[in-house]
Amino acid sequence: MPNPDPLLSVRDLRVQVGRRGPQILHGINLDILPGETYGLVGESGSGKSVTGLSIMGLLKRPLNVSAGSIHYQDQNLLKLAPRARRRLRGDRIAMIFQEPMTALNPVASIGTQIAEMFVIHRGLDWPAARRRAVEALDSVQVPSPEERARAYPHQLSGGMRQRVMIAIALACRPDLLIADEPTTALDVTVQAGVLKLIDELCRAEGTAVLLVSHDLGVIANMCQRVGVMDRGRLIEEQDTVALFSNPLHPYTRGLLAARPRLGSRVEGGRKRLTELEEIVPPNARGHDAPTLVTPRGVRAARAEATA
């Protein structure tokens, strides 16, 4: 086998609204390898965030997992007791969200919120945990970390808050970081810095990343492999360069064509953009969408076997 064993395997994951409501995810199959950055890209409502939340065990009612499995280190996360799952969450599998202001506690200082991770998951006492929190702030390149550890979330800029979120998420050196639109709320120059930071820290620690984003440019720059989601299905999965140079699924082709490219006007002129519907036939979406064979072949073959 050329591939190492996956760190996390999602098999036939189905998510439903209530017991009889509509299905949100229609059988997702994906593997995340140790240390790789895997991108999930799709439009709003495609199910990419729900996939991330399911892995994290943070689905809110009425959403619930109706079938499938999520294997991490020989244990099915979906069968785990809530207590055991809580121990993993934040420690082995951590998550950062789009809007750090709503994810951070507004009435606790930054330092306390980072230190909490060391107290809960590592059993440190508070003074030691606070010292580690300052180190963690330093590692995410927050200037004057001792001072900032005493600050509250509203006293920091958006980019700084997202760095704090990264410090919290990576505090326990997790095996997997789920980043759900981590830079969507940030300015481009700040985004570039935050993405570089995630990339450097995770590379250094060998942390795998599941990056959920609607931004094809961000995905292309960060990920080794990319899965494209549409209407609750993973419709294509390829290595990044292969996906962007040779998209196989009509929906992926439509998505890539719909975006103007920087620098393309000099030669191409001010053309009208190709709209998705012009490339994607209606029967290529939803129930009739083909799931595409990846160059590796492994995942798609399994998908067929379960179908």
Partner: peptide, 14 residues
């Protein structure tokens, strides 16, 4: 220049 350089560009990756 910084602004343009910060745009995540898929063509540059290819």
């Amino acid at each position: 220049r910084r602004l343009i350089d910060s745009v995540p560009d898929m063509d540059a990756v290819l």
